[in-house]
Nucleic acid binder design. Structure first.
Length: 501
RNA sequence: GGGCGCAUAGCUCAGUGGUAGAGCAUCUGCCUUUUAAGCAGAGGGUCGGUGGUUCGAAACCACCUGCGCUCACCA
């Protein structure tokens, strides 16, 4: 520490260390142990009539100082916003000399009475001042002006995205709307949990470290267990363990947890992300569609008090029922092509027409999915369930009860983005074994995202799993949608970054 | 991984070959209802790094590093 101080040539920081010493000389401990807070900025501003002249005790970080000799105005920020504090030497006494050594960023506690200044700002007239924490690093200064229409204008906003993500603590201090997004995220998750709990489903925890990964098509992170001397994989999905629990007699389980996929990062992908997976016995995917509608509406109402959102300039209504269309029909509508009757080369021709390059070797199902993504998906603006996917794409979903070559699966789309994935779960152990074997072949052929063969999971199904509906919702993406954030990094507090230097 | 772009003071940014700049922040002085407080003054820079072109480079060129956007893959 001593070294750091000496080596740090930054004069702003050095200056603050000097102030720290001066405070010590004055006998002031600049890192207090506690402070009794009884009011918050927003309460004081919202209840001025009641509180005028009454004593309050507030604490927060100094965001602006206006010194005028023997009196000063300070804006402090607490958990709910900013409030102005008026400090006068006559009122606070000797500590006013210590106040001279305070900076923007320091955390103080103030007791005093509520009043309104000449210019009409509700403020706290301080009678005592406590220094709670001295800040040694200058925060990026932003200045705010609120015009007559209540519009906030921010000057010199802290905008460097890299710094904002790396030093999220600074981002949260100076960009209040960032904090709001994460408060919303927290509320969305707890609302979802409440909804699932109230429907009688049991929240469980399954292994993050798995000897065999599965439940999705993705490349895993690999680690090693020293005592067992075996490789372990960080889970890419919870699915297979949760279904084992359905076998075990739970008839509704869910897990909200991190999954890890060792793949590229972009606006919609972070290597670790949060997933909610739900499995309900004796239900099928039709039932699950209604359940998703209900759950999303409940959360929206709970957290935002509305079910219609303006997102990216478009009005989106989550009110049930959502539009439903089969994948095959939706493609036919857009392209005129019946992909079930068409051959692989017909589909490739259709893709080429749209300038989509094909590597070669894709299964027909994969080609159908490609065509869907190019032609249909971007236009699914209002909430839509797309149903019945090619069997090759879904080795864990149950074959469609009437449609050959398809499985009972749906994905929910909003604004062209996938927000959930669900199916009637495959509970036929013989079929499951065959699907795994087909995936095994794909691994041998070099597909590093194909599903591993999980013998124990087949064994579990052999004991008998009731008909089951399963659902996965990417929490990060749901939050992005509901809070209008364009990047997954804006809904993850500490997104993955390259190591610093 | 490919393409495009960015990197100058703590923050936000000007500066296209000739003395390193502005606003805010910081420091000194004045100021007991200010509010992007004000007035007077001051300090603060390895112009991301390395090499090259040039009499001379923050600027032009090459490479490197980091970041952003975008395409491909994925949720």
């Amino acid at each position: 520490m001593e070294n750091n101080i000496q080596q740090d040539s930054n004069t702003l920081i050095q200056r603050r260390y000097e102030e720290l010493n001066e405070l010590a000389k004055m006998g002031i401990q600049p890192y207090a142990y506690s402070f009794e807070v009884n009011s918050y900025s927003d309460e004081i501003k919202n209840n001025f009539e009641k509180l005028e002249g009454k004593d309050v005790s507030v604490a927060g970080r100094i965001m602006a100082i206006r010194r005028m000799g023997k009196a000063s105005f300070v804006h402090i920020m607490d958990k709910n916003g900013r409030i102005q504090v008026y400090l006068r030497k006559d009122d606070v006494g000797e500590i006013y000399d210590a106040f001279r050594l305070l900076d923007i960023g320091d955390i103080i506690g103030v007791s005093g009475f509520v009043f309104k200044t000449k210019t009409g700002e509700i403020s706290v007239h301080s009678k005592s001042l406590s220094i709670l924490s001295k800040s040694l690093r200058p925060i990026p200064i932003t200045k705010e002006v609120v015009d007559e229409n209540g519009n906030k204008q921010v000057f010199d906003q802290f905008a460097d995205k890299e710094l904002r993500y790396r030093q999220r603590y600074v981002d949260l201090i100076v960009n209040p709307e960032v904090k709001d997004v994460f408060l919303k995220r927290s509320k969305i998750v707890s609302s979802m949990r409440r909804f699932l709990d109230s429907n009688g489903y049991v929240e469980v925890e399954t292994p993050v470290l798995q000897p065999m990964y599965g439940g999705a098509a993705a490349r895993p992170f690999v680690t090693h267990h020293n005592a067992l001397d075996v490789p372990l994989y960080l889970r890419i999905a919870d699915e297979l363990y949760l279904k084992r629990l359905i076998v075990g007699g739970f008839d509704g389980v869910y897990e909200i947890s991190k999954d890890f996929r060792n793949e590229g990062m972009d606006k919609t992908h972070n290597p670790e992300f949060t997933m909610m997976e739900l499995y309900v016995a004796f239900k099928d995917y039709e039932w699950m569609m209604c359940f998703v509608e209900k759950m999303v509406n409940t959360i929206a109402q709970d957290v935002f008090n509305k079910t219609e959102f303006e997102i990216e300039g478009k009005m989106i209504s989550f009110k049930a029922p959502w539009q439903r269309v089969s994948m095959v029909d939706s493609i036919k509508e857009k392209t005129g092509l019946d992909v079930l009757k068409a051959t692989s080369s017909d589909i490739i021709a259709e893709l080429k027409k749209r300038g989509v390059g094909i590597k070669g070797g894709e299964s027909k199902g994969k080609l159908i999915d490609e065509l869907f993504e190019v032609t249909v998906q971007p236009e699914l603006i209002n909430p839509t369930f797309v149903t019945d996917y090619p069997v090759e794409l879904s080795p864990l979903a149950k074959k469609h009860r009437t449609k050959e070559g398809l499985v009972e699966r749906f994905e929910g789309f909003v604004l062209g983005r996938e927000i959930c994935n669900a199916f009637s779960e495959l509970n036929d152990p013989v079929d499951q074994k065959e699907r795994f074997e087909a995936q095994g072949k794909m691994i041998e052929e070099g597909d590093d995202e194909a599903h591993q063969i999980d013998e124990d999971f087949v064994r579990a199904l052999e004991y008998g799993m009731p008909p089951t509906a399963g659902l996965g919702i990417g929490i990060d993406r749901l939050v992005m949608l509901l809070t209008s954030q364009p990047s997954i990094r804006d809904v993850i507090l500490f997104p993955q970054m390259k190591p610093e230097k």
